[in-house]
Write a protein that binds this DNA or RNA. Structure first.
Lengths: 111, 111
DNA sequence: CCAATAGTTAAGCATCGGCTTGACTATCTA
DNA sequence: TAGATAGTCAAGCCGATGCTTAACTATTGG
């Protein structure tokens, strides 16, 4: 079992590569086989499979093999943890900015 | 000048490390010097500076040196690009799920 | 001026990440 | 059942990352 921090590690790591983000965008349009994912990419099949493994390990993609073709699809709930981490930071940061702004405003009023 | 994809690369890469996320969380509470950032961390100062460089390169942190102390602070707008990428994916993915759901519902009604 | 403080630079090392090629397995299809 | 198709495994290359230590450069306070 992975703790939350490790899952964020894998998630952000997986998203930190344009090839993998591209694969996710391709999968946004619907499931695809490994070869379909690989077709537009300028690299070997094994390389694609390694990217796929990273995405799967991050929980962003689920795959299943039927006959000889492995079908890949988005795991729609996966991004929520990353989303929440970012949203949390953003709200805390802007709250801090607001507080700072008020402080300056108060200072201004006292003249 | 960095294109959008490269900026996402750097951003997500920077976020993919618990030490760096920890530094960001520390900075959420207000600016800090390099040594203050380093104090709780089980590593050398140069190592901390390298993490800091990654954060700065990703645009997540801004620093300035005054006298001999370098002060680091959050760049509050920085996360918006990552946030938007994720939000875009999430809405597209759930829209797709909804469409799929309707499809199944229609199928069900036809019995 | 001297010594402590705060940071910086450079070199080196171990491991990881992204890729390749080559050999192999499993599943269709004619 | 032969050959094409779809994927998998393993080894190895090489540059990037995450750290270290050692030496060095400001600044600052006594």
């Amino acid at each position: 079992m992975l703790n939350q921090s490790e899952q964020l590690d894998h998630m952000f790591q997986a998203l930190a590569d344009p090839v993998r983000r591209g694969m996710l965008e391709r999968l946004t349009g619907g499931p695809a086989s490994v070869s379909e994912l690989a077709r537009p990419l300028p690299m070997s099949l094994p390389a694609v499979m390694q990217h796929l493994a990273v995405l799967e390990n991050a929980g962003l993609v689920r795959t299943q093999k039927l006959g000889r073709v492995r079908t890949c699809q988005i795991e729609p709930e996966a991004l929520s943890m990353a989303e929440q981490w970012i949203n949390d930071r953003r709200t805390l940061w802007s709250r801090r900015l607001d507080a700072l702004g008020e402080l300056l405003a108060d200072k201004g009023e006292s003249t």
